[in-house]
Design a protein around this nucleic acid. Structure first.
Length: 548
RNA sequence: GGCCCUAUGGUCAAGCGGUUAAGACACUGCCCUUUCACGGCAGUAACCCGGGUUCGAGUCCCGGUAGGGUCACCA
């Protein structure tokens, strides 16, 4: 009885009942087996790689089953909120192709289960909190920060488990009169869960990724409603995921330890919990040990990093998919052309142990993905990226998109296409020699070529140069040039009789290559010249000849 | 420290009581080749430890160990 009276003085303004909300947000009408999933980021402005990992899993699960995937902004912590961050999150996810069926949008929100910003759902949380108090499963706690600190200090001194439980939960048993007095006096308070307090008892839950889990029953009187009336994650999650009719909650492993709290809350409210799926954590190698990819320490933990480096969104998605489902790579090998959405994603193929982020693998996957993107599209992507990130090369790139596309297309149509391109920053460094502003003399003339030969070779090359030559005719001229200057026309001849020659045709090519682009390594020379054009080719050779 | 999760090559991992313990990335060598890349071939490299159960254990059980996560009026 007193519980109900307590609830009434605590929440005099709450007129609705949970039953009202049950009716207002009825069970969804969906096909058999359809899954309803969500993403619940807190709007701090930072989107972690792990957020995207989890987002893909949720998205796939919902859309593969004909279900619903929605976005809920978990902005219950006013101290952490960054203005405009929700929009930034939506934009960042959209960049990687993560689309929501309902929830918060750039324009506001859509869907029948809103509002989807937790800061707008205060009445709902208070209504459920009131029910909890009325049924004796929650109570007001007036302990001050100083008093809480004292409890903690005492627990630490006695090496006891920290937290409010048992005798430490001093306000558990406050009388109705006492509560009324304190409320009337305007004493600030929180609403705490009255834990079942069945010390040591364990229960089992079936996790969608991990299988049967044995967990200790919750014993902590955790905060449900903060002093400012906002809910904590625990209450908000339980109320929202029930009312929004979420069927599967895929979230990071870091939530595993609070699962007992969530289960207890569902039980206290007489509700069925969703299927929980706790994913592995993304790790980073640091010296001898590995640890969670850290927002503070590791730039590569941020989605913004991949964008800044110029990774194509499809590449990041493809990489994440390979670590998300162990059989994705195999599937991809068999279906190289297929849309990744055609892959049958399952939670039981998800990793249970921490995954070390592997940049090598990302780059390899990325090269493969970029190979599948038409040159013109790739050129547009690269130029836009350069512009967005303020790269000085942006103007040159945008200045001649056809030129750029031809550059990016080098060697991509052979039986065994080149795989040179991984991500924006790397590509710019790779193709820099195509632009007069960025060519640099990176490599010295070949050591085995006498210095005096360089101008002679280049002069001879320039003289005989015919831009219209096909690849074969062009190389025949180089062979002739090599021979005329004492170099073997074929490497094999040189190998047979090294004493007869200064070097071989490869050395002559090296000189031309260095003259043309300042480096000794590059894709096919003839093709590069065709792209550079006759004027630029001749100018560069001539300039190098005089410089030498 | 308590509790929980996890444990196959350097990395991601297949494996579901009997396998010469897959594959991919990375690495090494060879071949192809005017350089680089691509490609081809070959190779180095793994079941955390100890007990059980079993004819037989990477696989099941127990105990260690190690790594990770978590113990907020943050999510």
């Amino acid at each position: 009885m007193d519980y109900e009276k307590t609830a009434e003085i605590l929440f005099p303004d709450v007129r609705e009942t949970p039953e009202y909300y049950e009716e207002r947000y009825p069970a969804r009408i969906l096909p058999q087996g359809a899954r309803v999933t969500r993403l619940g980021p807190s709007p701090t402005g930072f989107v972690h790689l792990g957020n995207l990992y989890v987002a893909f899993a949720n998205e796939r699960l919902a859309h593969q089953s004909g279900g619903v995937f929605f976005l809920r902004i978990e902005d219950t912590d006013d101290k952490r909120e960054v203005p405009g961050a929700a929009e930034a999150v939506i934009e960042a996810l959209d960049h990687y192709g993560v689309r929501f069926d309902e929830g918060v949008t750039l324009a506001g929100e859509s869907g029948a289960y809103g509002p989807y910003r937790q800061s707008l759902r205060g009445d709902i949380y208070r209504c459920f909190a009131k029910r909890l108090v009325a049924s004796g499963r929650a109570y007001p706690c007036f302990l001050t920060g100083a008093e809480l600190d004292a409890v903690r200090a005492e627990q630490e001194a006695g090496k006891l488990t920290p937290g409010l439980y048992g005798r430490w939960a001093a306000h558990r048993a406050l009388s109705f009169e006492e509560v009324r007095r304190r409320v009337a006096a305007g004493e600030p308070h929180v609403i705490r869960l009255r834990a079942q307090d069945d010390a040591g008892a364990h229960f089992t839950v079936e996790d969608g990724i991990r299988g049967a889990l044995s967990l200790p029953q919750n014993s902590m009187d955790i905060v449900l409603l903060k002093t400012n009336g906002m809910p904590t994650y625990h209450l908000a999650h339980v109320v929202d995921d029930h009312l929004m009719r979420t069927t599967h909650v895929i979230r990071g492993e870091e939530w595993l330890s609070s699962l007992p709290v969530h289960i207890e809350l569902f039980q206290a409210l007489g509700l069925d919990p969703p299927v929980y799926c706790h994913t592995a954590v993304l790790m980073k190698q640091e010296g001898e040990t590995r640890r969670k990819l850290s927002k503070r320490k590791d730039p590569e933990s941020s989605l913004a990093y991949y964008r800044a480096e110029g990774y194509h969104p499809r590449a990041v998605r493809e990489y994440l998919l390979t670590i998300l489902n162990s059989n994705f790579e195999e599937w991809r090998a068999e279906n190289p052309e297929a849309d990744a959405d055609a892959f049958a994603f399952t939670t039981d193929k998800m990793s249970r142990s921490g995954i070390l982020f592997d940049a090598d693998k990302l780059n390899d996957v990325s090269k493969e993905v970029l190979l599948g993107i038409p040159a013109a599209e790739l050129a547009a992507f690269l130029a836009d990226w350069a512009e967005e990130t303020g790269r000085p090369e942006a103007a040159s790139l945008k200045g001649d998109m056809r030129y750029l596309a031809r550059i990016l297309d080098i060697g991509r149509h052979d039986a065994n296409p080149r795989k040179d391109l991984a991500y924006g920053a790397q590509i710019l460094a790779f193709i820099g020699y195509f632009y007069d502003e960025t060519v640099r003399a990176e490599d010295a003339w070949p050591e085995n070529v006498p210095r005096a030969d360089v101008p002679r070779l280049l002069g001879g090359y320039l003289e005989g140069y015919r831009h219209g030559d096909d690849r074969t005719a062009w190389f025949e001229r180089i062979r002739a040039l090599a021979e005329a200057n004492g170099y073997a026309a074929k490497p094999k001849d040189f190998k047979k009789n090294p004493g007869l020659y200064k070097g071989h045709v490869g050395d002559v090519s090296a000189v031309i290559r260095i003259a043309l682009m300042g480096r000794k390594n590059s894709p096919d020379l003839w093709e590069i010249q065709q792209i550079l054009g006759e004027a630029r080719t001749r100018a560069r050779i001539a300039a190098a000849a005089t410089r030498a």
